[in-house]
Amino acid sequence: MAIPKALIASFLISILVIHLVEADPTVNADATTGSPNCGAACSARCQLSSRPNLCKRACGTCCARCSCVPPGTSGNRDVCPCYATMIIRGGQLKCP
């Protein structure tokens, strides 16, 4: 009895998806453990920004690289030195 190719393909895709989800360290991470949920942390950080989409995108990049976001909507950069020292071309701070 032959196993249909569609069944084999769907089984392999399911295994791949499960592997990718388990390999992602940011899924369901807790901010108190040192690896924050970047989406929630950046939403809080950027809530008062005049350009919230740009702020969240930059914050998300910084959070992914540094694994931290300073508390509050501005300042507190001493809490996360990596976040505080990241710069873009021209010497401006990257992280909001």
Rank of each mutant, 00 (worst) to 15 (best):
S43D: 06
S43G: 07
G60H: 00
C68V: 03
C63Y: 08
Q47R: 03
G90P: 04
H19E: 02
L93R: 13
P52Y: 09
Q92R: 08
M1D: 14
L16Y: 11
G34E: 00
E22N: 15
L54D: 07
A2G: 01
N28P: 06
A2H: 10
P4I: 01
G39D: 11
L54M: 04
T32N: 13
I15D: 03
D30A: 01
S67I: 00
I87H: 02
A2R: 12
I87N: 09
P36I: 03
V79M: 08
P71V: 09
C46D: 08
M86N: 05
P25Y: 05
C95Q: 02
N76K: 05
E22Y: 15
A58V: 07
Q47P: 08
A23N: 10
C95I: 10
I18S: 11
L48I: 08
T32F: 12
C82D: 00
Q47W: 01
R89N: 07
S67L: 10
S14I: 07
T73G: 04
C38D: 07
Q92H: 01
R51D: 14
A23L: 12
S67N: 14
G72M: 08
V79Q: 13
T61Q: 12
F11G: 08
R57Q: 11
S10P: 03
P70E: 02
I3K: 04
S50W: 10
V17T: 04
R57C: 00
L93Y: 09
G34V: 03
S67T: 12
G34M: 05
G34N: 06
N76V: 03
E22A: 15
G72K: 11
K94V: 04
G60F: 04
R65T: 13
I3C: 00
